[in-house]
């Protein structure tokens, strides 16, 4: 009986099928993602730029592109460094309130003592901004905070500002609003993740702490927070990686449409916007160099993530 003999072979006999099943993924990955990545590396060592509409390739250069990524012609910090700084600032002011609020909401929504009705509807509503096209959201907020925007008018009528260009002519409000949009779009997502984290904590630990007479705050500090650490780390790392690529919101918010760079005075130009600007102006070598730096920063974070994921898997195994 052929089937029986087949049965006797363990899955290892079918191993070759494994290659067939994973082949499409790897072929496409190698061609469309890995090679472009390697090619970007190669380009970052080539002095390629466009002059008068024609591309000029002055050949291999070890340092020219990378030097310009770090230091400007006058010896000061380069535009690339500035854009990394902008990205970091915008990200931090989005992430800190986001994680704090999400923690609070996660605790509230999982609190068995103070049950909140309509928690499901709440989740649906706060998650909504996350599914909407970021480009549309950015323009929506710009329309509201622009010189003739309804919210600008409102704040002016309240006497808080005296200039209708306040939000777009000053670095802090522009960055602040971009941070807020990011926060607004993502805190629902983070809350949902943290809720699943809290629900994953063994309830008996909370019960035991109740018997010991722990206050809500003590429970939060000594149980919830430590137990949530892995998921919070996950949120942190994914948010940081996502934040480094931030493009859609800042690229359509307060920008000079002629150059595509953030206003005022590049205060809201992020790294990816800058890469876009460099490719747009034909500085392919330098655009590649900035991409590589961005990649390395991301890679370091990915490694952190990987190490942490391994940790969690181990812990899960121990539990099981």
């Amino acid at each position: 009986m052929a089937t029986q003999t087949v049965k006797k072979h363990k899955t290892i006999e079918y191993g070759r099928y494994g290659y067939l099943f994973i082949a499409p993924f790897f072929i496409v990955y190698l061609v469309f993602q890995l090679w472009p990545l390697i090619y970007t590396f190669i380009l970052s060592f080539q002095d390629i730029y466009v002059k008068y509409g024609d591309e000029i390739n002055d050949g291999f250069t070890l340092t020219k592109n990378y030097a310009s990524v770090f230091v400007a012609n006058d010896g000061t910090a380069s535009m690339a460094i500035r854009t990394f700084g902008n990205t970091a600032i915008i990200w931090i002011f989005n992430f800190i309130p986001q994680i704090l609020l999400s923690l609070l909401l996660a605790v509230w929504l999982t609190d068995t003592k103070v049950k909140l009705k309509g928690a499901g509807a709440f989740k649906v509503m706060v998650y909504l901004p996350n599914v909407i096209t970021a480009a549309s959201i950015s323009i929506l907020f710009f329309s509201m905070f622009g010189p003739n925007g309804p919210l600008t008018k409102l704040v002016m009528d309240l006497g808080w500002i005296d200039n209708n260009r306040f939000f777009i002519d000053n670095a802090a409000p522009t960055r602040g609003i971009i941070s807020f949009i990011q926060f607004w779009m993502w805190y629902g997502n983070t809350t949902l993740l943290l809720i699943s984290g809290v629900l994953g904590i063994n309830p008996s630990i909370f019960e035991a702490s109740d018997i010991d007479g722990c206050t809500g705050w003590q429970k939060f500090i000594h149980i919830t927070l430590p137990m949530l650490r892995p998921i919070m780390l996950y949120v942190l790392v994914t948010s940081l990686i996502g934040g480094l690529q931030m493009y859609d919101i800042p690229s359509l918010f307060n920008v000079n449409m002629n150059t595509g760079r953030g206003m005022p005075d590049d205060a809201s130009t992020t790294v990816t916007m800058y890469i876009r600007f460099l490719t747009k102006t034909g500085n392919f070598g330098r655009a590649a160099a900035v991409s590589v730096i961005l990649f390395l920063v991301t890679l370091i974070l990915s490694v952190l993530f990987f190490v942490f994921m391994g940790d969690r898997d181990k812990k899960a195994k121990k539990k099981g």
Binding site: A72, N73, N283
Partner: peptide, 24 residues
């Protein structure tokens, strides 16, 4: 014009940005 930079600083920043955009 907004008073965020002195004239010299503004010009220096302009030069820096031009050099950054057009290496040549």
């Amino acid at each position: 014009v907004a008073g965020n930079k002195s004239k010299d600083d503004a010009i220096a920043a302009f030069k820096k940005n031009v050099a950054d955009t057009y290496n040549y």
